[in-house]
Design a protein around this nucleic acid. Structure first.
Length: 276
DNA sequence: AGCCACACCGGATTCGGAAG
DNA sequence: CTTCCGAATCCGGTGTGGCT
């Protein structure tokens, strides 16, 4: 997507966006971000010995019913198959669709028995663990208070400690924000409420642009005196690719050209400090 | 009351096809 | 040939309902 704003003319950028861009492009940003998103080493999770032996036996014997019944009890599957879930969990699908069953069996038999087990033992996808990381960091970083104390607080930075439901009620009933869910950031600086939508965007493509759109939408609907910000990290702050060409992906451009206060989580302290 | 299984939900990536 | 885009999919956490 074409850029409307020259990235080099800083006066045209929102100052917080400019700060975030500098942070990413002129520093060890990805190392620093470990403080907030502490990615762990991706360690494989070993299957119980007896089970893996049974799986390899059934595979070697081409005993499809046995192999399927063993795999049915696991959450992972050796490869991404769009039909597997239906076969294993919807009544009748397995019995009524022998061609699909055979196709999947043949897929499994095209790999070695060891490979089947290795794939089942593959490390969990770290991306699915990132949502809670921001919440956890926030809770440790700032003083966390329950709703009543939070409401009465009028000095310093405090974080609302509440369940998803309770926080959602609070933000909508008390602060009149009309949100479909609890905001990821829900803090109060002195007497100012600040809420934010936080995202990790690791790469362009896929649903990522929808996520970016959500943040921008969120920021655009300022209501009352509650301040809304976006907290975005990862790819949207990138400017040049390896060959030095300007990155023009939607995910990056839509964030970088946004007029709203969208920041890296690493700048949250500095941003909130401005309200003290 | 406490526990556990399970469905739902939010979040990110994969990968094939479209576009340049 | 390379880059861009979006539908489909997977994964783990959270909430919930049934059971003891």
């Amino acid at each position: 997507m074409p850029r409307k704003i020259d990235i080099n003319i800083h006066e045209h950028l929102n100052p917080w966006i400019k700060k975030s861009l500098d942070l990413f492009n002129n520093n060890n940003y990805l190392d620093q971000i470990l403080e907030i998103y502490p990615f762990q080493i991706a360690v494989p999770t070993r299957l119980n010995k007896e089970l893996s032996r049974e799986i390899m036996m059934a595979h070697a014997a081409r005993d499809t019913p046995k192999l399927f019944s063993l795999l049915k009890n696991l959450t992972k599957f050796p490869y991404d198959d769009p039909i597997w879930y239906l076969l294993k969990s919807v009544k009748g699908c397995f019995d009524n669709n022998p061609r699909q069953v055979q196709r999947i069996a043949d897929s499994l038999y095209s790999m070695t028995a060891e490979e089947v087990v290795v794939r089942l033992e593959s490390a969990p996808k770290i991306n699915t663990q990132m949502g809670p990381m921001f919440t956890k960091w926030l809770k440790n970083r700032y003083k966390s208070l329950h709703a009543d104390e939070f409401m009465n607080s009028d000095t310093g930075i405090v974080n609302l400690h509440a369940s998803e439901e309770e926080a959602k009620r609070f933000v909508n009933d008390v602060l009149k924000q009309d949100l479909p869910k609890r905001p990821d950031l829900f803090v109060k600086v002195n007497s100012t409420y600040i809420i934010g939508e936080a995202k990790w965007i690791g790469q362009p493509g896929g649903n990522q642009e929808k996520q970016v759109g959500e943040v921008v939408q969120f920021c655009s609907k300022q209501r009352g005196s509650v301040i809304r910000i976006g907290i975005v990290d990862g790819f949207p702050w990138a400017i040049h690719n390896l060959s030095g060409r300007l990155i023009n992906n939607k995910e990056a451009v839509n964030i970088q050209e946004s007029p709203y206060n969208i920041i890296s989580a690493l700048l949250l302290d500095e941003y909130l400090g401005g309200f003290l």
